[in-house]
């Protein structure tokens, strides 16, 4: 299917990807080509076929609801862009 410029802007927003006005035509072309390609799937009738989410039809394994990991906040925050007093810092959300 062919996307529109508005579609590309909306998808980029949903994906939280900034997109330059200049890059939209190339994205539009590439994404449309890929969607056109994947629509070859429609050559097969899949009515009444059960979707397959896991190759081995396995179900999610559960474990007892117990604390198994100790607090490692300092180690994990060592790779954070910006922290203060154990908190992650981001731009102000509410004025």
């Amino acid at each position: 299917m062919s996307l529109t410029k508005a579609d590309v802007i909306k998808i980029a927003h949903l994906a939280r990807l900034a997109i330059d006005e200049d890059d939209i035509p190339v994205s539009l072309r590439d994404l449309s080509n890929i969607l056109y390609f994947v629509e070859k799937m429609n050559a097969v009738d899949t009515t009444d076929i059960e979707p397959m989410a896991h190759p081995l039809a396995a179900t999610q394994r559960l474990r007892p609801d117990q604390v198994t990991e100790g607090n490692q906040r300092t180690r994990f925050q060592a790779v954070a862009p910006q922290v203060e007093d154990g908190l992650y810092l981001v731009p102000k959300v509410i004025e």
Binding site: V38, M41, N42, V44, T46, I49, E50, P51, M52, A53
Partner: peptide, 11 residues
Amino acid sequence: LKAQKLRRLIG
């Protein structure tokens, strides 16, 4: 969903 159904047929 269509792709997941095809996945079943491929398997």
